[in-house]
């Protein structure tokens, strides 16, 4: 089990919101990870490489923080097979559905986009069902 961490999670959420707000106001762009991954895969490195720089900041900062001011959350992952199957479905599904938790969940919800609200409801629902099935029906979930 993991501890309920309202203060940490609210604070982290505000930082995520600042990142999205900054990208809206300064760039006029959304920080949807699905789009950023897609453009990086296609070597679409226009626009002053901002997406590549964003990825570098995203990847590097947690390591830096873990050395100077670590978070209390720890790390516990499902078995590798689950990570690989899940990763594949996330990669494919997010492209078909034009977004994931960042694009639809944060940026789209912030714009009250009808499409994003539907996307969030759908993926929350299938994720809840999936975890119920893996943990409580099959009993295989981490």
């Amino acid at each position: 089990m993991t501890e309920f961490t309202p203060i940490w999670s609210l604070s982290g959420g505000i930082l995520i919101g600042l990142s999205a707000a900054g990208a809206f106001f300064l760039f006029g762009r959304v920080i949807g990870m699905t789009g950023i991954v897609a453009r990086t895969l296609n070597f679409d490195f226009g626009e002053a490489n901002w997406r590549v720089m964003f990825l570098i900041g995203l990847i590097g900062t947690p390591l830096l923080l873990s050395l100077i001011a670590p978070s209390p959350h720890g790390f516990e992952a499902p078995p590798l097979a689950a990570l690989i199957i899940g990763g594949f479905l996330v990669g494919y599904g997010s492209r078909v559905g034009s977004g994931c938790t960042s694009g639809h969940g944060i940026c789209g919800m912030a714009r009250l986009s009808k499409r994003s609200i539907v996307a969030v409801c759908v993926f929350m629902f299938t994720a809840f069902v999936t975890v119920f099935v893996t943990r409580h029906v099959l009993g295989v979930g981490a």
Partner: peptide, 19 residues
């Protein structure tokens, strides 16, 4: 949108990770 999000949610629920 609906189909892709549904697949995304299943993967998210299996791995516990999004991008």
């Amino acid at each position: 949108l609906v189909l892709g999000s549904a697949i995304f949610g299943i993967g998210w629920g299996i791995a516990g990770m999004c991008p």
